[in-house]
Amino acid sequence: MVKKHLIQQVSMFTENRPGRLAAFAQAMEQAGIDIYAFSIAEADGFGVIRALVSDPAVACDRLTALGFMVKMTDVIAVRMKDRPGGLREVAEVLGRADINIDYSYAYSSKHGAVLILRVDKAEDAVKSLKESGVPLLESAEVH
């Protein structure tokens, strides 16, 4: 079962002007949606807000209705072992499987430290990581 480990992340395009994150957060608040984790990637003149939220489908609808450009992206959530070498292990597994990491961010959840990975071949990544015994969160555990 690979699919249950694919976690839906909400990605939102933002123009580079003040108040964009506030607009996102306000939209989530008004829809009663919890934001568990987020990261902001910025480039020359624009950015992308990426977030794990309690109800990604509702979040997307809400943000789209407000005129934002959003999409859902499958990411993987790795439960990190709290010891040296934890990250190396994950990175090595993916490297051996020829899977490229597009970006990653981490947050602290009730399950401890969680590493979010966006990779080019998500399903392959899940398989490889599971085969190597790397603990992954299921979608139901996150949302």
Partner: peptide
């Protein structure tokens, strides 16, 4: 940017730009 071309990867967006 057209909706269908929005990607959450900065590289893709930079390429369009």
């Amino acid at each position: 940017l057209r909706r269908e071309f929005f990607s959450d990867r900065i590289d893709d967006l930079m390429r369009i730009k």
